[in-house]
């Protein structure tokens, strides 16, 4: 379970361009559920995701993951939690050009020190799961939009995370690919993973399989349920 208590995030604090991205967010994300964060641009959805995924620290407030307080942890411990507990799917996929699909999927697991042979085997299994085996040795810039998105999902699963965080995952996908993505998300959820999506795409946050919708505006939670 993810619990946020009075979380604030201020960028450029004390400067003329100070920006309060999050202002006193209290939130509980239930485990094993699909939670959608929605709201207009600039409402703080992405900032909230980065804080929940330990990619940034709040200006004030605390965040707990399964009872473990995360915001005070020294970076070496935070890196470990980020690597083991969270899988990230970004709006732009953020695949590394010049590397193959297989290499991109394996990359987040390199710091774990897992033997290359077993890591490669797991990555190939993930590619197979998403019907990407024929593209394993293709460079990612040659992939179609849907293939790139599925590669990004495979990459997010390589460390077998408990929580999948996806930021506007359907923003660049057509309806067919969006539906394909949402099928995969439901499948991951059925495996017991917690899914947190930030999206203002009605196709996503109005879907019947979404467990909870968190409405955000101006850095605050307007409605959660």
């Amino acid at each position: 379970m993810l619990r946020l208590s009075n979380v604030r995030k201020i960028f450029n604090a004390g400067r003329p361009n100070e920006w309060v991205a999050l202002d006193g967010v209290n939130l509980v994300i239930e485990p094993g559920k699909i939670t959608a964060l929605t709201g207009p641009s600039g409402s703080g959805k992405t900032t909230l995701l980065t804080l929940m995924g330990c990619m940034a620290r709040p200006t004030s407030g605390r965040i707990w993951l399964d009872g473990q307080e995360m915001t005070s942890l020294p970076e070496r411990f935070l890196t470990q939690i980020r690597r083991e507990s969270f899988g990230f799917i970004f709006q732009q996929c953020n695949l590394i050009k010049g590397l193959t699909t297989l290499d991109n999927v394996m990359l987040p697991a390199y710091p774990t020190g897992e033997p290359f042979k077993s890591l490669r085997q797991r990555a190939l299994q993930l590619l197979d799961l998403f019907s990407l085996t024929p593209k394993a040795n293709a460079k990612v810039e040659w992939l179609s939009g849907g293939e790139a998105q599925r590669t990004a999902i495979a990459r997010s699963l390589i460390n077998d995370p408990r929580v999948i965080i996806a930021d506007e995952p359907t923003a660049h996908l057509d309806t067919h690919l969006s539906n394909e993505f949402m099928e995969i998300v439901q499948q991951l959820n059925r495996e017991g993973r917690t899914i947190i999506l930030a999206s203002h795409d009605p196709l996503v946050h109005q879907a019947e399989w979404i467990s909870a919708v968190v409405m955000m505006r101006d850095g605050r939670v307007e409605e959660a349920g």
Binding site: S5, N6, V7, R8, R57, P58, T59, S60, G61, R62, T71, S72, P74, E75
Partner: peptide, 17 residues
């Protein structure tokens, strides 16, 4: 005060590095 989530505490935690 590690139990506090105040701005000062979080700033001290970062500053200590």
């Amino acid at each position: 005060d590690l139990s506090s989530g105040s701005e000062l505490q979080l700033s001290l935690e970062r500053r200590t590095y």
